[in-house]
Amino acid sequence: MAEQNVLVFLPVLPSGELVGSAAGLLGAAAQLGTPVGVLVAGAGQGQAAAQAAGELGAAKVYLTENDDAPTTLTAPALEAVAAAWEATDPEAVLVPNDIDGRDIAARLAVRTSSAVAADAVGVHRDAEGVVAEHSVYGSAFTTESAPTHGALIITLREGAVEARAEAAQPEVITLDAAQPKSAAAVITGFAENVEASSRPDLRSAKIVVSGGRGLGSKEGFGLAEQLADALGAGLGASRAAVDAGYAPYSLQVGQTGVSVAPDLYIALGISGAVQHQAGMQTAKTIVAINKDPEAPIFDIADFGIVGDAFEVVPQLIETIKAKAQ
């Protein structure tokens, strides 16, 4: 049987770089067949982005370059993926399970009358074809889903797949920007995030440091930032910390907010309500530091410290720095 094409939508950041989830998406695609990237980039950014996709395993790239920033929501990416679909007859489509990715998957599924698998944490192939793996109710359950027939459109949880594809020299096929086939919302403005932080993206970071209400104040939350920077980690927060104004909503980890699955999750001053656990308990190793010995986070922590994060963390940073030298 010929290798099956697996379309992978790879979002391009305003800077021209691929999003952090690109490596996991292509890694997952390679487990199923031939990874075929679909890119929509700004003018002059396309070739570099296509090469970057190749390094992460894309054997072929369908590239659309926009002269201007996109003025319609979802449509440019959707039409690019739809055109690549026409050209490649894929067996699966992988998109990141983020806001834009979900919109693309949703519209494409209806348009092509295909089955969808939302928020998959892994993919594999069985005798019948493509199978998506899911983690349900805060990872209390694991399920597998598959299409009755046809291709499967999958939104993949960021950071969930560790497999990486081998680098390839991609064949780049340029597509013209297509007219939207569906009615679309207009983009009227874009405000770049001011805190262009050097920290890795929370969703795809290997290590995540999250701060909670226990850090006591916005200033206190700086402790989580310090540790994140010392470890090169992504920064997260509990809902209580977000509600208290210590951190922006974009950092919220939990049932509402972002789900993360890093190698190491360090919770500082987070009691660990079930809603929070739902967003992080697939992490490989969980470390919790909390004053309250009865905090539920300790029930799932691989290493728990009953104590004051403000005393433990500086010592931790110092020790790690000393060992690194």
Binding site: P11, V12, L13, P14, S15, V19, L73, D100, A184, A185, V186, I187, T188, G189, F190, A191, E192, N193
Partner: peptide
């Protein structure tokens, strides 16, 4: 990606 998008439909 990388910012806040204003949209109108």
């Amino acid at each position: 990606y990388g910012g806040t998008v204003s949209v109108q439909a």
